[in-house]
Design a protein around this nucleic acid. Structure first.
Lengths: 256, 256
DNA sequence: CTGTACGTTCCATATTGCGGAACATCGTTC
DNA sequence: GAACGATGTTCCGCAATATGGAACGTACAG
């Protein structure tokens, strides 16, 4: 095992514990949790206080995170470009599954494709980067709808016109049921609802606040793509890795 | 000077330099910048890599921030409540200036008051927490408009009805000029535009991304509040302190 | 008033972090 | 293709820094 700097490891242990405790932690609590002497913990906290990474609540004496974390993170967050981050992982996913991979973000009542990775064999021809698709009849759209506040989603149901693209296109009640299911499973399916021969499964990409910032899907023809657990798992894993880069820590397949 | 942990200070120096360099930094560059030996810098970076606070770009060998910063920050950011953070500072500002202090956020074409600190002597009676005011005829509204993308602001100009509350209420062209000025100065004024006897000056509160998340204003009667540089400065300083807590690092009075 | 638990400070000690030297690799120049 | 320069990485002897135990000051509960 390669040598690391013990003091830095200890400091990060302390920081992570402080971060996880919403009301902060005291020196003695941290000493017990880290199995370090109080003087060691205190010295580390003083150093972090001096640099504004941690602050001490005057009333309780407890230590909490402070603003320097956000300041540092701002620069990391500003440097993240979803397409740049996602593209290599999307290519790997496409290669591993043989399916087309799409990335989309929400703009009003549409999903806008921002990435498309398409194997040569793909029959998937509708989607193009920059093109939009209605939310109600695409797997990525349903994922984005599932991320909305319920009241906002109900408003959408009221105003969307639910134009029928294929015999499989959903009506509002069917959509509500599928969005509800997606909130629980984190997955949505488009079974020929926009293009008759197309089958897609999608999931969400989240950032550090738990906000769904994009949706990612696998697409193929109905004949080719079976909704196998392994395929869905690969999609969820890929979206999870992208979410992680954007600071998301939870399980990706719990659409809360 | 109280003793801190040198290794932690060094690590934070390195982290802050890496954060400021959008394309990352190499070991030798960091060694020169920190005046530390390369082996010292390398050891610190290895420790941060192990914990996913930093990563090394495979192609360039440079070190960049990684996702653990956002993960840690998420918990800090989630714990921030604008009203809770702002209230003590708003009370100080009101006491120092003798003026009423308001906080508002944007909801569609309205500004919603989320805080009101009012000295007993205040004649300011319209605003109440939860109440809304149109964006075009309030200082806080103009601050929020100034933060919009220009195209979104032009759309607003097209659809707002510019109802005339007082002889001083602005028309679209006058508003455009004032919003333009606010983008430069970071300050906006309401000189009797919604209530004839009221004078307000407002500025923005930003978060770690540079996003304007709220506006803050000082209000009084036209007879009482002079637009003195000292008063405006106190407002900007107060808003700056709140912005800092939300991770904003830039100068608050440059509305970019 | 006493006991307990907290955060803080001090200082002798030894462990850990230091940093110089050497190494391996890569890109550039001739 | 060889030489050079700059990079990142590794190693190890050493001493400076981090450690942690003890003591202190404070606050609160009984």
């Amino acid at each position: 095992m390669e040598k690391t700097v013990q003091s830095i490891d200890r400091q990060l242990d302390i920081l992570e514990m402080v971060a996880n405790a919403r009301q902060g932690l005291g020196v003695s609590e941290l000493a017990r949790a880290t199995e370090l002497p109080k003087s060691t913990v205190h010295r580390i906290l003083q150093t972090l206080c001096r640099r504004h990474y941690v602050r001490q609540d005057e009333e309780s004496g407890r230590y909490l995170l402070s603003y320097r974390f956000l300041s540092i993170s701002a620069q990391y967050y500003a440097s993240l470009d979803l397409r740049v981050v996602a593209a290599p992982l999307a290519r790997e996913l496409s290669a591993a599954t043989g399916a087309a991979v799409h990335l989309a973000i929400q703009r009003g009542d549409q999903a806008v494709y921002i990435e498309k990775i398409s194997p040569y064999s793909s029959t998937c021809s509708y989607s193009e980067i920059g093109k939009t698709i209605p939310l109600y009849c695409s797997s990525i759209g349903k994922v984005l709808l599932a991320a909305l506040e319920p009241a906002i989603f109900e408003e959408y149901l009221t105003r969307a016109d639910f134009r029928q693209f294929t015999p499989s296109t959903l009506d509002p009640e069917a959509l509500r049921r599928q969005v509800e299911a997606c909130r629980k499973s984190g997955l949505a399916v488009d079974d020929g609802e926009h293009e008759a021969d197309s089958f897609c499964v999608g999931t969400g990409i989240k950032d550090f606040r738990g906000t769904t910032i994009a949706a990612m899907s696998l697409s193929s023809s109905r004949k080719e793509l079976s909704f196998s657990p392994a395929t869905a798992e690969a999609l969820v894993r890929c979206a999870g890795r992208i979410s992680q880069i954007f600071g998301y820590e939870g399980e990706i397949a719990n659409g809360s």
